[in-house]
Design a protein around this nucleic acid. Structure first.
Lengths: 122, 122
DNA sequence: CCTTGACTTGGAGTCGACTCCAAGTGTTAG
DNA sequence: CTAACACTTGGAGTCGACTCCAAGTCAAGG
């Protein structure tokens, strides 16, 4: 699959896909005879993983480090696990903050709802 | 309370507090005779609100709009409510994405855990 | 009196993460 | 044969949100 197809399928711009590859967020993608990227199944799964991690706010820098470890093989499994555990922890904290904010928003929305009703009753 | 105190109490840098005021994210804070900011209770509650909203990723721009509406009084209540409902919706979506990522991280961490154990058993 | 340190301003700089651009090459449709 | 179009590269530009800087003012302690 060429870059435009991947871009459409995952909703990531071609520029961003090239950027990801350039900075090492995914390993180099194979090229056809004209030098054009030809994404295989593994590449696509990688893009999906990256998309998922990025959507949750994991920093590009951390993901680069993780991907580099994957490339170095089984001896890096412990290090990779530590990275994921750390990021999982940070993610859980962010989600807690967001939950707190969500609750406050719900309170405020309800308060505004009541204010609107009271106004209408006048 | 002076800016340094607020900064310490809320974990927001003095620069950021001034920035928030400059762009209209909070209304101008009163000054003492020497022109130094003197935050009152209301100002502090505003900072706390902003801190909470920002920690959940609500854009500064949206908050500026919201604060401007608050300044314009009761006739803007409906508009404010709409903003909060919209942001609440976006927040819920982001949280869902994060939950999905969290689940995947948990799966991966568990898989790594098993891989580590298998290795040790050799 | 004078230094120290917290504050003031306007404006410039930084950072993460893209996003866009110019110039060039290769494949395809008419 | 040529025009259109998808792709390539390296590098520059943008955006949101701060963060830092220079130059100046003021209150308090030694």
């Amino acid at each position: 699959m060429k870059i435009a197809g991947v871009s459409e399928q995952y909703g990531i711009s071609a520029d961003t896909l090239r950027y990801y590859e350039r900075v090492g967020l995914i390993p180099p993608v194979n090229r056809n005879d004209s030098g054009i990227r030809d994404y295989n199944e593994l590449d696509l799964r990688r893009e999906e993983f990256i998309k998922c991690m990025r959507s949750a706010g994991l920093p590009v820098e951390v993901l680069i480090e993780y991907v580099a470890l994957v490339q170095r093989g089984d001896k890096t499994i412990e290090a990779r696990k530590e990275i994921l555990i750390e990021q999982r922890k940070l993610l859980a904290v962010r989600m807690q903050e967001m939950q707190k904010t969500l609750d406050i928003l719900d309170h405020k929305i309800e308060a505004y709802e009541n204010a609107v009703l009271k106004k209408r009753r006048k």
